[in-house]
Design a protein around this nucleic acid. Sequence first.
DNA 1: TACCTACATTTGTATATACAAATGTTAATT
DNA 2: AATTAACATTTGTATATACAAATGTAGGTA
Lengths: 158, 158
Amino acid sequence: MLIVRIEEVLKIDSKIPLSKSIIINVLYTYGIINGALNRVLKPFDISSQQFNVLRILRGQQGKPVNLGMVQDRMINKMSNTTRLVDKLIEKNLVEKSTDTVNRRKIDIRITTEGLDFLNDVDALIDTKEVEIASQITKDEALELIRLLGKLRLIAHTP
Amino acid sequence: MLIVRIEEVLKIDSKIPLSKSIIINVLYTYGIINGALNRVLKPFDISSQQFNVLRILRGQQGKPVNLGMVQDRMINKMSNTTRLVDKLIEKNLVEKSTDTVNRRKIDIRITTEGLDFLNDVDALIDTKEVEIASQITKDEALELIRLLGKLRLIAHTP
DNA sequence: TACCTACATTTGTATATACAAATGTTAATT
DNA sequence: AATTAACATTTGTATATACAAATGTAGGTA
C-alpha cells in the first residue's frame, strides 16, 4: 500500500510550504473522490449536485422543503438551486408548488419516482464510499474529520 | 476554538456511516477552501484554474510546456485546457506556438506580464493558505496529508 | 505511396457554476 | 393606505466543466 505524494504526481517542487501542501492535497483529493462518485452516477444521467438535492428531500420524509433550505443543506453550495431543481422536475423526480402561507417561498418534494430512483443509486454510492474509505481505521477517520474541521475554521470566514 | 461537525451544519442524520461522513467532510471542506481562495483571486479577474496554469508555467522557468503536460500537472483536471489557455492568451498572460519538432504539439509560455501578475497575486494566496492552515501543527499536517493519500489510493482507480 | 494507428489539440454541445440584477412578496413604518 | 426594507426566488450573462466527436499530424507497414 504505497501512498503517492502529490508533489510527485503533479511534479511540484517538493520544497513548498506545508500550508500549501495541505491545501493542494485537499483540492486534489476532492477531484479524485468527486470523479469516482461521478463515474457511479454517470449511467443514471444525474449529476452529484442533483443527487445531493434528492437525498436532502428524502431526508425530509415527505415534508416540503423550500429552496433556501435546500441550498443551506447542500454539500457544495451553488448559486442556482432554481435551475438545478428545474432539471429534476423535468425528470419527474421532484415537484414544486408555491407555499400557501408565504407565497415568496416554493415547496419542493421528492416524487415516488424520485424515491425509487434514489434507492437504486444510493446503494451503489454507499458501496463506493465504503470502498474509498476502506484503508482508513475508525480512529484515523475521526482524526481526519477533526483536522478538516480545523481547516474550515479559518477558511470559512470571508 | 470550536470545531463544527458537518452533520450539524448540513442538518444530516448523525447516524450516517463513518465512510460517508469522511467523504462529505472532504467534499464540503473543498468548497469552503475553494471559496476562500476564489475570494482572494476575484479582484484580479482570474479563476483558480487559470491561476493554477500560470503557476505551472512559471515552474518551468521559461521552458515551453505543451498542453498535455499542463493538464497532467493541474490540481483539478478539466477537459478543456485549450479554452482555459485561450482565456489567458486573451489577457496577454500567456502565449503559444506550435512545436517546431512535432507539429501536433503546441508550446505554451508565460509572458513577462504574466510573471508580474503572478508575483502580485501569489503573495496574497500564500498568505491565505498559511492563514487557513494556521490551526494545524506540523505533525497534524503530515497526518492529514497521509490520510488524504489513503483516500486517493482507492478512489483513484476507475 | 497508400493505408492504418496512435497521438495532440480543437470544436461542439449540454450542463454546471458564479455572481449580479430583476421580479415578486411580505412585514414594518410612517 | 402608501412607502420602504427585507426576503425568496428567478433570470441574465459569462465562464467552467464533462465528454464525445472532429481535425490535423506523425510514424509504421504493406
